[in-house]
Every structure is written in structure tokens, then in C-alpha cells.
Amino acid sequence: MKTLIWKEWRETRMIPAAFCLLFLAINLFLITIQYLADHMHGARVTPPGGIYTVDSVKLTGVACSLLAAVVCGGSIVSSEASKGTMSFLTSLPVPKKSLWLVKAGIGFAGASAALLGILLLGLALIWVNFGWSAIAIAHQDPLAFLVMLTVLMLSAFTAVYAVSYAVSCLNNQTFASIVFAILACFAISGAGFGMILLLDGVTTQKLSEFNNHLITLHEFDYYLALYATLHNPESMIVATSFALLTLTVIALHISNVSFGATEEPRRRYLIPLRIVGKWTAVYASLGAALYGLYMVILFHVQPALMRQ
């Protein structure tokens, strides 16, 4: 196991360093542009407040971290297949599960190292350019909310890595794997946002109908829990974090099943369809059961308790 970990780290270690350098380069570029704009004569070329702000540091940091997660996850298995060394690895007397685990773990360690490096560089850049007070001004929310936001971002980071790792196990080419991973992350995010917008539209419509006395309170109660979740930031963060962690588990399951698969990539893509179908059925059943339980509690148990 030690030698496997050593080998994976030797192959992965340059990626976090590269993304830390990329983050630094982008910020130095923005600083340079800002400096030149501030010292030019004539019309101002940057918006009021400048282009290099605490928010720009945060934005570039998030983007570089997520890209590091995609590259670490999207390349770690597909690079073996593209170089032809997967057969050498699988011919060793090592269980496939151990190989999968080491690759998943070291890839995530690399992505996490990139995240940590970018975080430290970002803090250093903010301190140098804006001072610590700029962070306090930018974050005036309660500590609990900030913690929940951090959990959400880490869940997103982990989900992005897991999806990229799953795509890497399905592909034989490194570059294609990274591109597909980025597309998959965008597609899943788009689907997620679309779902939220759809649900929000439905619940808002029902609220409007209730306000216009077109439906009764009893009928609106069916949508109340959903409406409350969608319009409460804390609830949305918890629900989204849960959804992202579920996505992580599904993606890791897909990667576990398809790791070292020798079928053509075309046939390998049937694997995620099968697994997603299975998980959808499980979650749909669970969701329906929980919703039914909620309705029973709301319309039968609660009134009975109140009558007593």
C-alpha cells in the first residue's frame, strides 16, 4: 500500500503546485492591470472600486480550487489508461478495491492541498493588499451561518472531485476526461439550479393562489414545507449540502464499479446510467415515504395532539 501511495503522490504532486501558481499569476495579473489603470492619465478603464477587490480574490480562489478538484479527479485514473500503465497496475497482486481507494484518496489529497494552498495565498494577498479589516467588513454574517456556508462549499468541492473521479474511471483519455468532467459538473449544477427554480416557481404559484383564495390553507399545507425550505437560507444550505454529499456517494459508487473496466468506453457509460437509476429509485421511494409520514403527522397526529 505504501508504495502505491508513494507512486500516486509522485504523479499527482505537481497539480496542486501548478494551481497555486495559477491562482497567484491571475491575481498578480489583476493587480498589474489595476496598478496600470490607477496610474494612467486620461479616462478611467476600471469600474469604481477597481477590478482587484476582496471579492475578486475570493472568486478566483473558488474557480482555481474547483478546477484543481476537476483536474486531480479527472486525470488520476484516465492518465493510467492513456499511458497504458493500467494493465501493469492491475497485473500486480493487489485487490482492485485497494487501487481504487489509493487513487481516490491521493487525488482528493492533491485537490485538498491545492485548496489549502490557494486559501493561504488568498489570505496573504488580502492581508497585503487590503488588510484584515477588509475580511471583517466583507463577512458580517453570524458565525453559525459562516460555518454552514463553509460546509456547503466543502461539499461542493468534494462533489466536484467525486464526479471528476467517476468520469476519469469511465474514460481512457486524460484531456477528454477533464473536459467531460467540467461539462458534467456544469450539467449537474444546471440541473440542480433548474430543479430549484422549478420548485420555487411551483411553490410561489401556490402561495399566490392561496393569497387570492383560490386554494385553501389545507391544500397549501402540502407545499408549505417545500416553500419554507426554499425561502430560508439556512434550510437551503443544509438541503443543498445533503444533495451534494449524496451526489458524492453516487459518483464514488460509479467510479468503484467502473474502475479498471476493460469494456469499450461506449459500453462503460451504461454503468452510471444503471447506478443513477438505482439510486433515483431508492431516493424516490425514501422521499415518498418521508413525505407521506410528514403528511400523516401534519394532518392527523398534530390535530389529534392539539385536540387533547
Binding site: 507512486k7 504523479e11 499511458k83 497504458g84 500503465t85 494493465s87 501493469f88
Partner: peptide, 11 residues
Amino acid sequence: YIPERLPMYDW
């Protein structure tokens, strides 16, 4: 086992 393409880690 000695395979046909002898894929080892060239680094």
C-alpha cells in the same frame, strides 16, 4: 507475467 507492451512507469 510478462505482457506484450511492457507498460511501466517511464519516470
